[in-house]
Simulated assay, not measured.
Amino acid sequence: MPLIKNRYGKGRVRIMRIHRDGDKQDVSQLSIKAMLEGDFGRAYTDADNSTSTSTDTIKNIVNVVARENTALSTEEFCQVLAKRYLDLYPQARSVSITAHETKWARLAVDGELHPHAFLLDSNGKPTVEIHATRDGMTMSSGLDNFTFMKSTQSGWENYYTDKYSTIQPTNDRICATSMVASWTWSGKPASYPATNAKILDILLKEFATTYSPSVQNSLYRMGEKVLAAVPEISEISMACPNIHYIPMNLSAFGLDNNNDVFLPTDEPHGQIECTVGRG
């Protein structure tokens, strides 16, 4: 029986990097998954481990590269890490790195940002994904489960209906989602963190300041704006589960409900996804 495909590595390698610059310190907390592909099949088929390093060693390399590179952005750190694996293991054909960041925001004290005190920012996790071979590297950055909403200026009308349709059209509804988004780099920006922040700002501004006839249309326009403003990316993908807010029926209490009181629910939810790229 042929071994069709295999890869192996280490997942959920947790590290906290602290970069010290005088009194000011910066922190970067990551969960890393590093997976190798190459000449490792004999460990599966022939119980021959001679080409396979241990997954514990793969973890140790993450820690060493982190110690050597405390100041790098997550994107740059993952690039250095991928190259280290390829340099160490000639039997490796490719390496895939995935990083999820736990965000820490600098604490403000008396109106000034503190040099070494932080608050947990729990809205969304920044992500980086890299696939590196000996011929090149592809990389994307993004956000996982970033939640945002607006209480009006959203609708759903003039849609296709059939005998199973029950939802009523509206031009005034809450629009909320927990977005998973990623953008693929085609060039290196002056700063990955600053460009990632710019992309998020563009997405949120378009969402907040324009009427949404559908989540589909909003996502497309959000992607258009990002691509127009950030030449270093080739495409952006967004997946947005609709967090529903259902108007409560208060008629039993002699009360109307003029879009004032809702039941929040995220199950089941609509799932809207798209990728917007250059022509």
Rank of each mutant, 00 (worst) to 15 (best):
T133C: 00
A82L: 08
E129Y: 02
A47S: 15
R67V: 15
V65K: 08
A66V: 15
L119V: 12
T102R: 06
V80C: 13
N123S: 11
F146N: 08
V128L: 08
S151H: 07
Y44L: 11
S151G: 04
K103H: 11
S96Y: 00
T170S: 05
N69W: 14
D87Q: 04
Y164N: 01
Y44R: 00
I61M: 03
T51G: 13
V80P: 13
P90L: 06
K103M: 14
H131E: 05
M137H: 05
A92V: 08
A99Y: 14
T70E: 10
I58W: 11
T70A: 08
T127G: 08
A71P: 05
G136M: 04
I58D: 06
I61Q: 04
E68D: 03
G124Y: 07
M139R: 09
T102A: 12
M139Y: 11
A105E: 01
T133A: 03
S165N: 03
Q91G: 12
D162I: 15
S52E: 05
V95Y: 08
H114M: 00
L119T: 15
F148I: 05
L81E: 04
I61Y: 04
I97V: 14
N158R: 09
T152C: 10
E112H: 04
S52Y: 14
D110A: 07
T98H: 15
D87G: 07
T98M: 14
S140A: 13
S141D: 09
F118I: 11
A132L: 12
L107H: 04
D135C: 07
D162W: 09
T70R: 08
S165D: 00
G111S: 05
V64N: 00
